[in-house]
Amino acid sequence: MSAPTWDPAQYLRHAGHRARPFTDLLARVPGLPSEQPRIADLGCGPGNVTALLAERWPTAHITGYDNSPEMLDKAHVEWEGRTVGGGRLDFSHADVRTWAPSEPYDLIVSNATLQWVPGHGERFAEWVAGLRPGGSFAFQVPGNFDAPSHVLMRELAHSARWRGRLAETLRHDDAVSAPAAYLEALTGLGCAADVWETTYVHLLTGADPVLDWVKGTGLRPVLTALADDEEAARDFVAEYRTALRAAYPDTAHGTPFPFRRVFAVARKEA
């Protein structure tokens, strides 16, 4: 299975809703041990939420890491450079599955990325080891793999018409762990851990807004797998659109889109 191709413009169509969990995550990160902290953002995407780190820690040297050339191109153009507080924001290519700290970090953070990394809990020990004493590792992941948006997509991919091309394309419902499992893993590494979950109910507007949302994220593997067959891609999207309309009916004020997320902040002993 090849890595999905990303479309920064499509992803950013719901930038406000997507950024909300990151701001909620950062609100729970304690003070960092350095006056000029070193921060890594794993899976930075187009850089728009990485820039929020510079607002919280204006003297920091922040590096956003991603493996998507399309996302990194957008981040380099829009956000790279000196920050108003005298810090620096830069971006670099890296695969989160193998990335390891090459220097001490005050904060390692990841926003809606680790669900793409099978067995990501096995990486926690190396990342925590790369923190300065008193530093933090913080992440949030979607916890909605049992929601209709994902269930319907998987069912369609495994249907008679599509299973030959798509059966192995999508992530399964075990892509993330339960909050209690993350708590156990992080406390087992000697960290003070704060783990919680939140279900946002986004009110989306426009035509087929849930489809528009997933075109920027969860549907990317399907769109990548069918990229060489425009007719097949159109047919899959049309079937999926019909199913989503029934699962997420429009209302007078928009389309409610419940979205559960799991958060964790782990502080290394000082």
Rank of each mutant, 00 (worst) to 15 (best):
N144E: 09
G254F: 07
Y182M: 05
A9F: 04
L166T: 10
R234Y: 02
G135M: 03
R123V: 01
E239H: 09
E78K: 11
L186V: 01
T23V: 14
A227L: 01
H17Q: 14
R165L: 15
H120N: 14
A51E: 10
S102D: 15
S2F: 02
E155P: 04
A138R: 06
V96Q: 07
L42D: 03
R234A: 15
D229Y: 00
Y105W: 10
G81V: 13
V201P: 04
F236G: 10
Y65W: 13
V214I: 15
S110G: 12
G47Y: 06
D66P: 11
A27Q: 14
G190V: 01
A207S: 08
S2H: 03
G218S: 03
S136P: 03
L183E: 15
R82A: 13
M1P: 07
V96C: 12
V237P: 01
P101R: 04
T187I: 08
G143C: 02
W213R: 04
R38N: 02
D95R: 04
H76G: 00
G86S: 06
V49P: 01
P69G: 15
V84G: 06
R82H: 03
S177R: 13
E230T: 13
S34F: 01
R161E: 15
A185C: 09
R171Y: 06
P249V: 13
W79D: 03
P46L: 02
E80C: 08
F124P: 02
V151W: 09
V262K: 02
W99C: 05
G31Y: 00
P133S: 07
T255D: 08
H76D: 01
R18F: 01
W116P: 03
N48E: 09
H158G: 14
V117G: 08
P104S: 14
A9C: 00
R123G: 04
R123D: 03
T113P: 07
P37Q: 06
V84I: 04
R18N: 00
L107P: 03
P118A: 11
A243F: 12
G164I: 09
A266E: 00
D173M: 00
H172M: 05
R163Q: 14
Y65T: 09
P256A: 09
E231N: 01
L152R: 11
Y182I: 08
D7H: 10
P30G: 05
T113D: 14
F139T: 09
G119N: 05
S34N: 04
R154V: 04
P256D: 10
R20K: 12
L114Q: 10
G134M: 09
A207T: 12
D250F: 02
A246C: 07
V237C: 12
R123C: 07
D146Y: 07
V222F: 06
L12E: 15
L12V: 03
V262L: 11
A60K: 08
P133C: 04
W127M: 15
F263S: 01
Y65D: 13
Y182Q: 07
G86R: 03
G81N: 12
R82K: 08
V77H: 12
R241W: 00
H158K: 14
F259Q: 09
S2E: 10
R161S: 14
D41H: 08
D235N: 02
F257M: 09
W6M: 05
P58V: 13
R82M: 03
R261I: 04
F22H: 12
V214G: 04
